[in-house]
Simulated scan of single mutants.
Amino acid sequence: MNILFVADPLEVFKTYKDTTFSMMREAQRRGHRVAACEPCHLSWRGGDVVKARVREITLTGTLDEWFQVGHEGVRALKDFDAIIMRKDPPFDSEYFYATHLLEQAEREGARVFNKPASLRDHPEKLAIMEFAAFTSPTLVTRDEEDVKQFHAQHKDIILKPLDGMGGMGIFRVGADGLNLGSIIETLNRGGTTTIMVQRFVPEIAQGDKRILVIDGKPVPFSLARIPQGSEIRGNLAAGGKGVAQPLSKRDYEIANALGPVLASRGLLLVGLDVIGDCLTEINVTSPTCFQEITQQAGFDVPAMFIDALEAAMAD
């Protein structure tokens, strides 16, 4: 296969942990050709097909100067066998526009994973609301009074922006309600911005588990991102420690319930975030943790992903 990865600049990859890098490495190991571009390299001229300025690359096998560029030029997206959308959040206007260009490329015959329309339809925090049976009590609102009533009911709560990533902008307010009004004002910007509020799940002390689901099937190990010190955030970007561990019975219950539904919508790779027994996020843009799970648990996650990609292309 000839595979195009739409991703962040190759030069900023942290290859010792980067999931997209591990996908590329496994694809090349199997003899597939690898190319890369950034969303800013996509273009669509009226009357023509969607194209991009791409770089064909060869992985060198080292982690420093890890790739060599072969041919570089403008190519039609439909000429690739598969396109893997791996641009990291935030899901901003430019990401939104990129999904529209990729969707047009689909209409022209391209195969894009994850499906662009499904990337738009599954905002990573809001997507859990469809599966309330698996979540902690949750409220999405702009209204300050709604938040205060939710706090009065549940006492210990988490507030977060809908567009946050890496644990940014997450606040915990306990039973004393200290600074609740100020935190609401900060997050909802005077009632102009929608936020998410959830009942605090104390099992965060044992980790925020990332469960990877590939073509509807769960990877049998999660990566528990465990908060350090006085932190309540387990995100690796916020200093959490990642520990691979087998899925629990509840983890499998959640993954097996959501996996086939999400796969049927064109989401080949999904990252479910679970704290204790509660689903907290559904990550679809660029789920990570391939290398950490592979290195610690010995389960080859990149191989499972490329297996699924090859099977999808054979359909």
Results as ranks from 00 to 15, higher is better:
Met1Lys: 00
Met1Arg: 01
Met1Gln: 08
Ala7Pro: 12
Leu10Glu: 03
Glu11Asn: 11
Val12Lys: 12
Thr15Phe: 01
Phe21Cys: 11
Arg29His: 01
His32Ser: 04
His32Gln: 05
Ala36Glu: 11
His41Glu: 14
Ser43Lys: 12
Glu56Gly: 06
Leu59Pro: 09
Thr62Cys: 13
Thr62Trp: 08
Leu63Asp: 13
Trp66Asn: 00
Gln68His: 14
Val69His: 03
Phe80His: 10
Met85Ser: 14
Asp88Met: 11
Glu94Pro: 09
Arg107Thr: 09
Glu108His: 07
Lys125Cys: 05
Leu126Met: 15
Glu130Lys: 12
Phe131Trp: 07
Pro137Ile: 04
Asp143Gly: 04
Lys148Ser: 06
Gln149Phe: 08
His151Leu: 02
Ala152Lys: 15
Asp156Ala: 11
Lys160Val: 10
Leu162Met: 11
Met165Gly: 09
Arg172Met: 07
Arg172Leu: 07
Val173Arg: 10
Leu178Cys: 14
Asn179Val: 08
Ile184Pro: 07
Thr186Lys: 14
Arg189Asp: 07
Gly190Phe: 10
Thr193Glu: 13
Ile195Gln: 02
Val197Tyr: 10
Gln198Ser: 10
Val201Lys: 02
Asp208Trp: 00
Val213Gln: 04
Leu223Ile: 08
Ser230Pro: 09
Gly242Phe: 01
Val243Cys: 08
Pro246Thr: 05
Asn256Pro: 06
Ala257Phe: 10
Leu258Arg: 02
Gly259Val: 10
Pro260Gly: 01
Ala263Phe: 04
Ser264Trp: 01
Gly266Tyr: 00
Leu268Asp: 09
Val270Trp: 03
Gly271Trp: 04
Cys278Thr: 11
Thr280Ser: 10
Ser286Gly: 12
Pro287Cys: 03
Gln296Cys: 09
Ala297Glu: 13
Gly298Lys: 05
Pro302Met: 05
Met304Arg: 14
Met304Val: 15
Phe305Gly: 10
Met313Asn: 02
